[in-house]
Write a protein that binds this DNA or RNA. Structure first.
Length: 462
RNA sequence: UCCCCUGUAGCUCAGUCGGUAGAGCAGGUGGCUGUUAACCACCCUGUCGGCGGUUCAAGUCCGUCCGGGGGAGCCA
């Protein structure tokens, strides 16, 4: 394996000949000397390659170098005379691997708008911002697996194509091989899905939770981490049609246990970014969200507060600030409420639990009071909700009654109900939208800038 | 789906009361310098998103369609 530029720049000056491969970000020329900044994505800042035209064997090549071209440079690591880097490469040779015509190359040595970069999503990872996002995203994905693996969770791959509409979490994308110009019909005029690929109507999954629960009933602690799809007709900076979700599920676990896992999980993931991506975070802190590092450090250092929904509403009702939406018992918390609870009441992350059953999903465990369910949202400063979770209803009769009340058909969930018939145990879990977490860690304001190729309504270029 | 904003040079944007378009950056040329988004001078660059309308005259006003952004709803 070749040494990355990030590794090379940690070296001390030495007599060894080293090779630098990467893309030219900028060239600063003078009569006798030329400075090249070469980046290979291993760090925000590239290595400075210095060409002394007097001793260089191929000075003509310098004129052919332009922003974006790929190069192979060989030379020795030397101490830098400039102020912005400790070492640099004194080049013996520079070779152009792929040229990059400057009159048509869409990226320039200047700041571009993120909107413009979205139009050239295939080139934008070469920019500072999107490159840094990619490294932070990678760090977080690795940390997610590390956290669960270290704590005895098994990684379960739940299906992407499903025939069940989990919890009605959102509009679904239909999956079919039927000829849309010749859709087969049954005698009563409905679409005849028995002729379709799966013999029944199928869709892309909106959540792997129900399938995840089945494996938690065997492996005790599991997690999923994969793509999820919502055909929601919403174009916002916080929604995607295709996004990645993390959904752990723990058997023999109640809501308090769930809350404890969330807290250590979030602290671990954000802690990993603080530890492993300091340069990228500094960049985001400086140019994207001032105070970002302090915000993340605060999440890592502060014990999460805990408020029951009823107490949270009481706090909101006595708040001195004017909300756009007046809070009352039974209302769903608006983002403004969530931020107030986290920022003003708790001064840090807070888990709000025990919500009214009417505003939560069918599978959440009913509490003794008959009014609330064992649900939990983790709220963080500046963002609001970052995680939603619950203890699941594990009592067969209670669950069936609830489904009936909602008009759900038992036979559609026969396998899910089987879990409550055969060795049922209290269990709990939560879901985290990975891109939302990456937004929080980077300060990026639009979800389309934290995933390589965003899919949204009317937008699936590339 | 609803509401608001927006579309002008390769990029970021200005363009007043309607009178046939301008700056910075990028690019080109030359100069200068161990430079750091280098710097200095000069030069080049336009179906003003599309279509239609009002007007002597439309980048500017009106209608409509398309693209982009933000908010609401819904959520992860």
């Amino acid at each position: 394996m070749e040494e990355s530029i990030a590794k090379l720049m940690q070296r001390k000056a030495g007599p060894d000949t080293v090779v630098v491969k990467g893309w030219l970000r900028t060239k600063r020329d003078s009569k006798t000397i030329s400075f090249l900044e070469v980046n290979d994505g291993s760090s925000l800042k590239g290595i400075q390659v210095v060409v002394d035209k007097g001793t260089f064997n191929n000075p003509g090549i310098i004129d052919q170098l332009s922003t974006g071209c790929s190069v192979v440079c060989t030379g020795k690591i030397v101490e830098s005379m400039g102020g912005s880097q400790s070492v640099e490469l004194a080049a013996d040779s520079v070779e152009i691997v792929g040229e990059c015509p400057s009159d048509t190359y869409p990226l320039q040595k200047k700041r571009h708008s993120l909107e413009y970069l979205r139009e050239i999503a295939h080139l934008r990872p070469r920019t500072n911002t999107i490159g840094a996002v990619a490294r932070v995203r990678n760090c977080m994905a690795y940390a997610v697996h590390t956290f669960f693996q270290q704590n005895g969770f098994y990684y379960v791959n739940t299906p992407l194509i499903t025939a069940s509409d989990c919890e009605g979490a959102g509009a679904m994308f239909q999956v079919t091989t039927l000829d849309l110009n010749k859709v087969p019909h049954t005698a009563d005029g409905a679409v005849d899905y028995s002729k379709d690929f799966f013999g029944k109507r199928a869709s892309l999954t909106v959540s792997g939770q129900l399938e995840g629960e089945t494996y938690a009933m065997a492996l005790k602690n599991i997690y999923t981490f994969g793509p999820t799809f919502r055909a929601e007709n919403s174009v916002t900076k916080r929604h995607l049609a295709e996004f990645w979700m993390i959904e752990p599920e723990m058997a023999f676990c109640n809501l308090d246990g769930d809350r404890a896992v969330v807290e250590s999980f979030l602290k671990f993931v954000f802690g990993a970014v603080l530890r492993d991506c300091p340069d990228d975070l500094e960049f985001f802190d400086k140019l994207v969200e001032p105070g970002l590092i302090a915000k993340l450090q605060h999440v890592v250092d502060t014990p999460f507060a805990h408020l029951e929904y009823t107490d949270a509403i009481a706090e909101l009702e006595k708040a001195k600030v004017q909300f756009d939406f007046k809070p009352y018992w039974g209302c769903d918390l608006q983002t403004e409420h969530e931020r107030y609870l986290s920022e003003t009441v708790c001064h840090g992350p807070v888990a709000v639990t025990d919500y009214p059953k009417e505003i939560k999903s069918f599978y959440m465990k009913a509490n003794e009071d008959g009014k609330t369910v064992a649900a939990m949202d983790v709220l963080v400063p500046r963002l609001g909700e970052i995680v939603g979770g619950s203890e699941r209803e594990y009592r067969y009769d209670v669950l069936v009654d609830k489904m009936k009340a909602l008009g759900m058909r038992e036979e559609d969930y026969w396998w899910y109900l089987d879990l409550r018939r055969f060795g049922s145990v209290p269990h709990a879990g939560f879901g985290l939208g990975f891109e939302r977490a990456v937004m929080y860690a980077t300060g990026m304001q639009n979800i389309r800038d934290v995933i390589p190729y965003p899919r949204a309504v009317g937008s699936a270029e590339f």
